[in-house]
Design a protein around this nucleic acid. Structure first.
Lengths: 236, 236
DNA sequence: CCGCTCAAGCTTACACCGTAAGCATGCAAT
DNA sequence: ATTGCATGCTTACGGTGTAAGCTTGAGCGG
């Protein structure tokens, strides 16, 4: 018997690389990608690392810390905006790159949007974004508003799309199946929309580019104007 | 001793109204409003209702069912769009009304974007929205895209704003406090932005109306056009 | 080479969670 | 009066994050 505690080069099983914070975070990301963030528990994660749960606490302070690290790892995958001539194309690429990352890591949107993120990758990402917008002629205040509006669209869209019940391919078929469940009397327009999808006149697939380009075009018009344009009337 | 089981009109304590699904949902909403959704457990909720945890299961199938009910209660508070002349003003009011509800119930955004919601209030709300947009001259496909973009903005913005570390009032003071933590060398633009806030040239408060009006103005231009406008070049 | 220190593994234990299974009670209908 | 059932209750199980403290072996000063 090689003692009660299995060593790194223990007698049976393949060799186990030493546990590090980086290895823990990487494993957690992979785990959440494959089995969902709700399945990610300290014990389950420890198991795939062939370690006991409490050993993880030598490398992360608590689970929140683990999640913080995962988020920053994910954010680091986003293409960082550069200062250049075409701010619009740059912001567009930024948004699409972020969206693609959020699709690769379906758990990331929720974590980003529901916690304070001050990891190094996030700070770099934000600073580069503000820099690009400032360079394009926006004031800092406007850059702030623009980033807020764009990020709202990116995260909001990805979240709504991610939990939409039907994947992109089988949408028409699914619509046909759900159609009888939508009573025409009470919800005539939702039903009409579903019929458009079935008839092939509408894919039913929403694209980030739609709202994104509306925002970018609108921002273009606002460029160099220091103040937010006010509405003519209070509400109505 | 009035038997092992305390009756509704038990000897001590104030009278307990009979448990109903509505009462459970209402109490859950109030609980989550006050103490946060993460504090809402079946046992804690049962306690405020002066009941045992398992009794709740006579009125909700499981916790997910409870959350579904809470969401629909919240969605029912949103002003339902009406078919009228000014679709833009209607959509604007819809967005602001939704935003206000989401601020009243800070837990709601997260639940709405991270689950499938098919409660009656949600279906009514969506049908009325599509109806309004269709009546305004949008095709069903366009109405779908428009609603998706607007909702992305509403939920995304509310989520990002809700977990932003600092409340609206004390923003300048907080910025002054955090400023030393932002190294000028590595994050010069974030620092410059913070200085704008401290100097009072920028409130630092982002408004839903900013992105919302960009979308609405853009949608106005797209009205009556059946297809999504394509970008001139593929990416760049 | 000896003996000490300490990082990084481990075990145990606790309070909390959602909820399955089944019992107790009292009202409603027969 | 009897029965059945809705609605409350108790108990118990397997899961969670993590505090407290033990064990082991590698590194290092003497």
């Amino acid at each position: 018997m090689a003692g009660r505690h299995e060593t790194a080069r223990g007698s049976r099983g393949r060799e186990r690389p030493p546990l590090t914070r980086g290895a823990v975070l990487k494993a957690a990301v992979a785990f959440a990608d494959e089995r969902g963030i709700e399945a990610l528990s300290m014990r389950q994660l420890a198991e795939v690392l062939r370690v006991e749960a409490m050993s993880l606490y030598n490398h992360v302070a608590h689970k929140e810390d683990l999640l913080d690290g995962m988020v920053d790892l994910a954010v680091a995958e986003i293409e960082v905006p550069t200062i250049g001539e075409d701010w619009k194309a740059t912001m567009r690429r930024r948004a699409i790159s972020a969206h693609e990352m959020l699709l690769r890591h379906p758990w990331a949107s929720m974590l980003i949007v529901s916690r304070i993120n001050v990891g190094p990758a996030m700070l770099l990402y934000m600073d580069a974004t503000i820099a690009c917008l400032k360079h394009a002629g926006f004031s800092y205040a406007m850059a702030d508003h623009a980033m807020s509006a764009l990020d709202s669209q990116i995260y909001g869209f990805t979240l709504l799309k991610a939990n939409f019940p039907i994947g992109t391919a089988e949408y028409a078929g699914a619509a046909r199946q759900f159609l009888p469940m939508i009573p025409a009397e009470t919800h005539p327009h939702m039903r009409a929309l579903a019929e458009e999808v079935i008839a092939g006149r509408h894919s039913g697939i929403n694209e980030l580019a739609f709202g994104l380009d509306l925002l970018l075009d609108g921002l273009d018009r606002l460029r160099d104007k220091p103040r937010i344009r006010r509405r003519r009337k209070a509400d109505h």
